[in-house]
């Protein structure tokens, strides 16, 4: 059982690409602590035999898309909001991987 600490929060922030200050990490930690405590009553509930419900009702998806008439947006449409681009590509600083 890994203890939740401010350090864990900072690690998580790194994983999800968020930069946060120590102060903020502390606040988040407090929030998580609070939620965990409030959730205790739910954690302790007996839910044997109850399936998780992802959708408000048990929808059977019968609508699928036909594989025909492919449509593309233009490069202009694709890149209209891109902060950095050239004629063909969206640009970012060199990725090291």
């Amino acid at each position: 059982m890994i203890k939740v600490t401010k350090e864990l929060i900072k690690e998580l922030a790194e994983d999800i690409m968020l930069e946060i200050s120590d102060e903020e990490a502390e606040k988040v930690y407090q929030t998580e602590e609070k939620i965990r405590n409030e959730f205790l009553k739910v954690t302790n509930m007996n839910v044997d035999g109850i399936d998780p419900m992802h959708y408000p009702f048990d929808v059977v998806n019968t609508h699928l898309r036909e594989d025909e008439n492919p449509v593309t947006i233009t490069k202009e449409q694709m890149m209209i909001n891109a902060p950095s681009k050239d004629k063909d590509y969206v640009l970012i600083k060199k990725v090291v991987k």
């Binding site: 694709m78 050239d86 600083k93």
Partner: peptide, 13 residues
């Protein structure tokens, strides 16, 4: 796909 240039990377979707 990401293509790598000297100092930048280019994104092709």
């Amino acid at each position: 796909k990401t293509l790598h240039d000297v100092d930048r990377s280019l994104v092709d979707l």
